[in-house]
């Protein structure tokens, strides 16, 4: 059983929902990344999404774009990201790690080499924003060989009949993009999310996490009863960036992000126990 599968099964058994923070590897700094990952776990993260910085992050709003830019200024490459996961695994062999990024760094490394390196580092899953099912078969072969899950995005504009094309190729979990737009944008429409999650669940038994547009305990709580996992990215990165911009230390910036995450965890747990 994969780490992702095991984690979702354990959560399901205890009636809890996965909290999935997203951070960009190397932001705010390379040295802060692994300690930050451990703090996320202590604060209640069940799965960590670690972003691979890319020069042209086409689906990101300004907050995560700037995170990518800071990480690139810190010289972070895909190899470095996998190195950070390796370092994280020294002290945590349980928390599933999902690498999230864009196609080109993976293409440049080569599918087979990338898959091997992910396995070696202890990566559990991959999300590639610009690799729809039509373009993924070659990479999926390599990922299957090393038992790494490939996690696909489904969006509000995905036609109903296309959902199964996606879920057939997916493993680990499915990621529903709750708003039309870039990361960090938009207002959630819970009824619309509910409608789409029902369609997705009719097509697959995989867990479904929801992301984009979740910025606090209230928005997380609104989706927790219907989703298997809640992804929070821009809000954490924005909290850290604002603190640093205001002249606070990196440690203080991380503390503030952790405070937000604890709050979101509370919102999710309260909404699910009440439901």
């Amino acid at each position: 059983m994969s780490r992702l599968q095991a984690r979702y099964q354990a959560l399901h058994a205890s009636g809890r929902k996965a909290l999935i923070p997203y951070i960009v590897a190397g932001d705010p700094s390379i040295s802060a990344t692994v300690p930050l990952m451990h703090r996320l776990v202590e604060a209640g993260a069940d799965i960590i999404e670690i972003g691979v910085p890319f020069s042209d992050p086409m689906s990101e709003g300004p907050v995560i774009q700037q995170g990518h830019e800071r990480a690139l200024e810190n010289g972070v490459s895909l190899r470095d990201v996998l190195g950070l996961v390796t370092a994280f695994r020294q002290d945590d062999i349980d928390t599933p790690i999902v690498v999230m990024g864009y196609a080109n760094p993976v293409e440049r490394m080569g599918h087979a080499l990338f898959a091997e390196a992910c396995m070696g580092a202890g990566v559990d899953g991959l999300i590639t924003v610009d690799l729809p099912p039509e373009e993924v078969d070659n990479l999926n072969q390599e990922l299957k060989r090393v038992a790494i899950d490939n996690i696909f995005l489904i969006s509000p504009t995905t036609p109903d009949e296309r959902i199964s094309t996606i879920t057939e190729r997916a493993s680990g979990f499915v990621y529903y993009v709750a708003v039309k737009g870039v990361t960090g944008a938009g207002n959630l429409d819970v009824a619309d999310v509910t409608h789409h999650l029902n369609l997705i669940r009719a097509s697959t038994s995989l867990p479904v996490a929801v992301g984009f547009g979740i910025k606090d305990a209230v928005s997380a709580a609104s989706l927790a009863p219907i989703a298997d996992g809640i992804v929070v990215g821009s809000a954490l990165i924005d909290t850290m960036a604002r603190a640093i911009h205001a002249g606070h230390s990196e440690a203080e910036a991380i503390d503030r992000a952790i405070t937000l995450l604890v709050d979101i965890r509370g919102g999710i747990d309260q909404a699910t126990s009440a439901a």
């Binding site: 086409m58 924003v129 729809p132 039509e134 036609p159 296309r162």
Partner: peptide, 12 residues
């Protein structure tokens, strides 16, 4: 060539 874009654009 191909279609390497986010899922949101695939149907458009």
């Amino acid at each position: 060539g191909g279609k390497f874009v986010a899922e949101t654009l695939m149907s458009a």
